[in-house]
Computed example of a mutant assay.
Amino acid sequence: MSSSRYELFQKALADARLEKGLTQSEVATRLRKPQSYVSKYESGERRLDVIEFLEVCEAMSVSPNSILKKTQPAS
């Protein structure tokens, strides 16, 4: 279950970025990280810790709750 839930998390982050009209490079610049940082957490190659997640949300001007709500498996 945690694996599929993390996939929902990855998708929610990528979808939020796209909905804001941001590229991976733009988010990375806001985070002062290389573009590969964004690519890796969106693809699942790298996991985010809680603080990193909050920083990503701030960089995209997205509510952390809006992302977390999308990680709930459909019941």
Rank of each mutant, 00 (worst) to 15 (best):
V50D: 07
S39Q: 09
E42G: 02
Q24A: 06
V38C: 10
V62H: 07
S36P: 05
A59W: 04
F53G: 04
C57H: 01
M60I: 03
Q24F: 01
L48K: 02
V62K: 11
K40I: 08
E45I: 11
R46Y: 13
E42Q: 02
F53V: 04
Y37N: 01
E58M: 12
E52P: 03
K33V: 08
G44K: 01
K40T: 08
L54N: 15
K40G: 06
K40Y: 06
R47N: 15
M60P: 00
G44A: 09
E58V: 05
D49I: 07
Y37V: 06
I51E: 11
Y37Q: 05
Q35P: 07
E26G: 04
R32G: 10
S39T: 10
E42T: 07
Q24Y: 04
K33Y: 07
S25C: 09
E42V: 00
G44T: 04
V56M: 06
S61V: 00
S43G: 10
R47H: 15
F53K: 00
R46I: 08
L54D: 12
V27D: 04
E58Y: 15
Q24N: 08
A28P: 00
A28T: 02
E45T: 09
E58C: 13
E55F: 03
C57S: 06
S39F: 00
S61H: 13
S39G: 08
R46T: 12
D49Q: 07
S39H: 05
T29H: 13
Y37F: 15
V27W: 03
L31G: 08
L31P: 01
G44Y: 11
C57I: 05
E42W: 05
R46A: 13
E55N: 13
S36H: 00
V27M: 02
R32F: 07
E55V: 06
A59H: 05
T29V: 14
S63H: 10
S39I: 00
I51Q: 14
R47L: 07
D49R: 05
R47D: 14
K40H: 15
R30Q: 09
G44C: 09
K40R: 15
